[in-house]
Design a protein around this nucleic acid. Structure first.
Lengths: 309, 309
DNA sequence: GCTTTATATTAAGTAAAATTTGATTAAATC
DNA sequence: GATTTAATCAAATTTTACTTAATATAAAGC
């Protein structure tokens, strides 16, 4: 088992004889001969037909040569495929929670597409819990989601931004006091299966407000629309990047402030595309900063160098 | 440049420490340490973070580990991949509907794992509608699901088996007549979001039976358990491969017979792993036939050659 | 047909590499 | 603070790989 042998096999195939291969690789013919012999022994197949003076590759042999080429190339590109330019041309399967699908994600994907031709991003929307398991099992390279309660060692979490919870109320509501609003209007609940929903429930419970249960919805869009039409008020995370044409609504910080919904990117440590993922992470942070709504969290990332792109 | 070093890198990643990796590879810790050092020098990147006593893999390092795995596997399968015994080693992401997760899928996966070392199958359970879109968008290589109403040109559908609908009733129920059972017991409905559920609803509507709505459940397991405990009757597809220890229940064919739930495998025509998918399809059909419950549909498959396994 | 020439193989010696041994350093545990 | 455990270092040793030189063999030239 050795790369050298594979390399000389390739050289022999290219040069046409052991002697020439030896010369081009700064070896003696004897060395080449021995290497090919051990290679054949190792593999248990005849690579050369030795009837003639200059051994000719058998059919199996020439198939091996192309395999050997693949392997040697894979080895030689090993470093660059992880850290270099080559790492920037690949397919990337990324998940994202619905709240990011109108603002953050489209903007980030757009600039990434523009900056890296050859990079192909597929987006899969879903709730945090599902995305977590998809990343964990390797179906997704990374996902943008709410911070998990526990991040296991084989996973990598990079925080992007803290989105504080806000009260969403119709523009014409008589008061701006969050508690008053929550107690007077019907409450539109963020689906509690979503991790944000749980965060909201937690705050509500701690406040012991007398709320009027209205409906329970999945997405920020549907909740906004309901509130817009005066059907109630809601608590939602403030979007770090607003949607293109946000509805005219009151957005009031809750008081006392709840622990914010922390958005970040989750991936597996052993994912070979970690460089790409770093770039996506970096782009997400940039988009958040540019949007100017909330400060991006300067997440410590030892392995990450901005890359002069 | 050496496979040994890659192998010990993998061992270190798996064992978690140099010492353990040394033991498992019949080496001394010193050898491992030196190998990793030369590997780092060779690649010009830091694979380990040596702040702590037992060095931890850097992000780049763990990406390298997965690359190393690819390369080592490629080398090890070099001979067999050329001689054609097992030109089949790859990762395969496959979806499957829950009804197949207790019988068909585990058996098929097991024999595939046994037959093709090097083949790595990941299974993702989900309802047909979701799997359809995941295959369509390229997140899954293939999926086992109910026949879609329409299969677009870029998708490929291979039918595996027709599962007729049956009535599930407690063993001690007073009658064996499906209609009587359905009208006397509460009806446990298969979730109508699932495509089977719709098929069942269709038949029920056509029969104009006066059923007593009970509950609506997601999985065959939960429905079986409910029926077993006498909480009602249900209509479900007969499983082409039963689960290991099926509950003692009456299983009565419905009359008049409804159009059966057709199970098959969906993939994209442009998927590069179509050879592997063919093999999986073939295996699924074999498992169905072996199980002897229902005949496998001999689906015409131009591109498929049985492979001497 | 016999020599010449170029090519591969073999065996022994030599150079290079990888591994072990035993000592040293440093973090973690008691 | 002593003890255990993990990694590293430097020198000795072993293993592996390469070269040299001799041998065998097929094609080309005379």
């Amino acid at each position: 088992m050795s790369f050298r042998r594979l390399k000389t096999l390739i050289a022999v195939a290219e040069c046409g004889s052991f002697v020439k291969a030896a010369n081009s690789n700064f070896l003696t013919p004897a060395a080449v001969s021995q290497q090919m012999k051990t290679l054949e022994a190792e593999m248990g197949v005849a690579l050369f037909d030795r009837k003639n003076r200059t051994p000719a590759l058998t059919p199996v042999g020439s198939a091996m040569v192309s395999k050997a080429r693949e392997i040697v190339r894979a080895y030689e590109n090993m470093v660059s495929s992880v850290t270099g330019e080559a790492a920037l041309e690949d397919d990337l399967a990324i998940g994202a929670v619905p709240t990011t699908m109108a603002g953050l994600i489209p903007r980030a994907v757009k600039s990434l597409r523009d900056a890296y031709t050859g990079l192909h991003i597929r987006i899969m929307p879903g709730p945090s819990s599902e995305l977590y398991s998809l990343v964990d099992r390797g179906f997704l390279d990374a996902a943008v989601l709410s911070e998990p309660v526990r991040v296991y060692d084989h996973l990598r979490w990079l925080a992007i931004v803290d989105e504080p919870l806000i009260v969403l109320a119709p523009e014409n509501s008589p008061t701006d006091d969050p508690k008053e609003l929550l107690e007077s209007y019907p409450f539109i609940r963020f689906n509690s299966r979503a991790w944000v929903g749980q965060l909201i429930d937690q705050w509500l419970n701690s406040q012991r407000l007398k709320i009027n249960e209205g409906m329970e919805l999945d997405t920020l869009e549907s909740i906004s629309a309901m509130v817009y039409h005066g059907l109630g008020v809601s608590i939602v995370p403030m979007r770090c990047v607003p949607s293109p044409r946000p509805l005219a609504l009151k957005r009031i910080p809750i008081d006392p402030p709840a622990s914010p919904r922390r958005l970040g990117i989750l991936s597996r440590h052993d994912n070979a595309k970690h460089k790409l993922i770093n770039i996506v992470f970096h782009e997400l942070c940039c988009v958040v900063e540019l949007s100017g709504q909330l400060p991006a969290l300067a997440s410590p990332d030892p392995g990450f160098v901005p890359e002069g792109v």
